[in-house]
Nucleic acid binder design. Structure first.
Lengths: 220, 220
DNA sequence: CCATAATTTGCCGTTATGGAAATATTGCCA
DNA sequence: TGGCAATATTTCCATAACGGCAAATTATGG
């Protein structure tokens, strides 16, 4: 009776308890995002979100400590899926190729995933909101560091024993999230004309190339 | 009568008005940091900070919207000084060398700057607090993006006309702040034994080398 | 169906946040 | 120097967020 939203969750083994918990969390996060995009950040109170998810305001706070955290929860999960995706990729694939592909898989427009046009439009509005709204940006950044641990771990696995406790994985993970953030910004400020992927690839190529200062350029 | 804290401010040309404004801001930020390190994040109210800086609580909010922002203000300014430093460096210096040096100049322990031992200890406590306290971490990240614009601009200048509106400067700036954050984390979790510089250099070498996946690089 | 553990909820005091208008301070010029 | 306009600070205050606590409600395993 609590929540009716159905998510395409992969039910592994956990009981009803945990399932409902996740559903509630997802419903709250989704409601937060939807309402904020619709009415604007400041015109949504915690109570509104709770109401939209059919729980008490107090319960909202059992799941999220702030509105912003609820809104950014989706982004955090996306980053964690990047880590999963990376883990699932063939080990012989070059690291940065694998990274680009993993990131790309999570940041493509749903248009490519055979959703309706309305879905794509909604997706775009949401990205814009998340990237644009200052109050959210901070939370997105927190989500980034929260995901960096996972990312670093996967990267370390790929590198093998060497560099397990090296700086490499941590720095690489931080760079990955930094690149994602920058690309989203850039893509948005260009007016989200085309797909993100080209930008993403370009950015990661810069990283993989070590930011060549002088390429085929004469003069400075 | 408002503020008595004296900062080693370089008075350029601005009038008394602007000077007092900056002093007040600095006093508030400093008081916030000092009190929080001393008493712990949750045991400091905005009112306490305002009182410590001899202003009304409402005035505090004219300068900072949250406690966290006040505490992180110092970090933001440090990042901006990195940009300044970078701008001041010889143009013939390789980009990433210049960056490392600029960052290093702002993140060295004050021990090297002939301060007293007590100062060094205080500096360390503060860094630890800023890196450790979750509530602050988020704000530090916000400061990072806030500074990225400046950094990107300077980097673009160094690159010359080419790539002015390229991704390069923005991605590079984001990477710089990401590296700084990671290094601070790492340095702190290692128990701040030695100086930060070696870690910083190691991290930036990774970046400049394009994160070589396979290499016989076991040494630092 | 019960005992137990976990979750949800209502209640409520504390703190944060920011608008509006009254006061005080500063920069400037006659 | 005295007065005025521009800014900054302060007081007052309404709304919302935050989070502890204990009662009510709901799963889980016998």
């Amino acid at each position: 009776m609590r929540v009716s939203q159905e998510v395409n969750a992969v039910e592994t083994d956990i009981g009803l308890r945990e399932r409902k918990r996740r559903e509630t969390r997802a419903a709250l996060s989704l409601a937060a995002l939807r309402l904020c995009v619709q009415r604007g950040w400041k015109n949504v109170r915690v109570d509104d979100i709770a109401a939209a998810a059919n729980v008490s305001p107090r319960t909202f706070r059992n799941y999220f400590s702030t509105k912003a955290e609820a809104v950014a929860a989706g982004h955090l999960e996306r980053l964690l899926r990047v880590a999963d995706e990376l883990r699932a990729r063939p080990a012989n694939e070059p690291l940065w190729t694998a990274i680009v592909n993993s990131v790309a898989a999570q940041f493509e427009s749903p248009v490519q995933k055979s959703e309706t046009l309305a879905d794509a439009k909604r997706w775009l509005e949401r990205i814009r909101f998340v990237v644009t709204e200052p109050a959210i940006r901070g939370e997105v950044l927190k989500a980034s560091v929260a995901a960096q641990g996972e990312l670093a771990e996967v990267i370390a696995e790929r590198l093998g024993a060497r560099g397990a406790q090296d700086l490499y994985p941590q720095v690489a993970a931080a760079v990955v999230t930094a690149v994602i953030g920058t690309v989203m910004d850039r893509w948005m400020s260009d007016g989200p004309s085309g797909p993100i992927l080209p930008l993403l690839r370009e950015a990661f190529e810069l990283v993989a190339a070590g930011f060549p200062e002088s390429q085929a350029k004469a003069g400075k």
